[in-house]
Design a protein around this nucleic acid. Structure first.
Lengths: 241, 241
DNA sequence: CGCTCCGTTGAAACGAATCAATGAAGGTGG
DNA sequence: CCACCTTCATTGATTCGTTTCAACGGAGCG
């Protein structure tokens, strides 16, 4: 989990109004100073796979609204190792914690290609103070994050449940929409979530592979990011067979 | 963890205005209908040790503000076993989740004697809609809960860390104020937090006892609720010796 | 006094961690 | 275009820690 991650990010072409948060802010009548345009720092950025949206302990300069893609939220332990505490999807707002914290409490890493809107913190705070709808929106987000984290941890780290079961649960949680595609994390990352060693993840995944339940996608380069899974079978395993 | 818990609760004598939440609501100009008095259902209740403030899946009838004491927040797993996802202290607001949920998502159990203010949900929601300060207050609470849960889980369930270490960390987290008193959970409960078997908890605690680091309080009946701990020594263990 | 609840302790079984070696894939430079 | 190197996944053999099963003991209570 200490492998280096590229820091690349580039401005994309999308309109800022695709972002719920931006719309909400503008609706609230809080415009980013007069003559607002995209030079104020509100953009749709595209982040490469494995790049950081922001890093732990860095001063909070912006709030990120996920327009497309999946983002891993990583918490660093004092012991040095890192754990993934939740996963953000399209529509989520990253690091609502920034309201009461001057620095980021997590690191956010793109899983696959990610589009995110970066809203300058000053504008965001201004908007928050003046808009009841903004506050409710954030409250909802915060509660959603709480629920996600609780479930994530309490189900996925339950030692009573065998690792086979927990791995199946994790794979189901990483499913893309309704199909049989599953977001593919590497063995280190899955270990960081399930709290087991990468070797063990590999063993379980190999088992699943032999049973024909999970297969790695072959073909194009980007396809490596996904598994193909037998969802019905996985659900059985997830319930402890 | 399936031991029965008494359901006792009785009305205490304290004034509702000791409760931050109540004050906030009244300040917001939202009074519980005219002629408001304590018959509206706003009370300072006293809960006995091990009694429930509310139970999972029950319809949300009230929000609880903890005036004094410690409350365990328990999440039930589909597998049947229960885990303590966080601990509430004086000043905390229980189950902020109720804003977006019709039923309780957790069970709240008093650890020792607990004073809590029960605010009828209708009044609470009314106040929330009209008060910016209320919303910010809840947002803060929600974020605090999120942080607490993350830390709780990510530190205490880290499999890499030996159980000795994690137990020491837990004990430090259960410390009462600045002294050497530590809130005493039973072996089942500590197991439910650390995600280990009660027998294992017992073994570790016995070790600590032999090392003179932790001692069970002797004497009065209520004193059973506490340990006496050598804080400095525990901190060493908590850092992995 | 005997019951039950809860904590304690022991011995054995099991499962994941650890250590170590091999293999597949991708990138780089000659 | 191929050899080389790095990264990451895989697999095996062994060790270690927790669980499991089981029995015992103290405390509180009817």
């Amino acid at each position: 989990m200490t492998r280096t991650a590229p820091q690349v990010r580039r401005r994309a072409s999308r309109n800022a109004f695709d972002c719920t948060l931006c719309r909400e802010l503008l609706d609230a009548g809080v415009s980013p100073e007069q003559g607002a345009d995209f030079d104020t720092g509100i953009y749709d950025y595209e982040y490469e796979h494995a790049s950081n949206l922001y890093r732990v302990a860095a001063p909070v300069d912006a709030v990120h609204s996920i327009l497309a893609g999946t983002v891993k939220i990583v918490k660093a332990e004092p012991t040095g190792n890192q754990r993934i505490v939740r996963v953000l999807r399209t529509g989520d707002i990253a690091e609502v914690e920034c309201i009461s914290s001057p620095t980021f409490e997590h690191t956010a890493i793109a899983a696959g290609s990610v589009h995110a809107c970066r809203i300058p913190i000053a504008w965001f705070r201004q908007g928050l103070a003046g808009s009841v709808r903004m506050q409710m929106l954030l409250l909802q987000q915060s509660l959603a994050a709480l629920k996600e984290t609780e479930t994530w941890f309490s189900r996925l780290t339950a030692r009573a449940t065998p690792i086979r079961t927990r791995t199946a649960q994790l794979l189901l949680r990483l499913r893309i929409d309704a199909g049989d595609r599953i977001l593919r994390f590497n063995v280190d990352e899955m270990g960081a979530i399930l709290n087991i060693r990468p070797e063990t993840v590999s063993r379980v995944l190999s088992d699943f592979g032999r049973l024909g339940i999970v297969a790695k996608e072959r073909g194009s380069v980007t396809a490596q990011l996904y598994f193909r899974g037998n969802i019905a079978a996985l659900e059985k395993f997830a319930q402890g067979i």
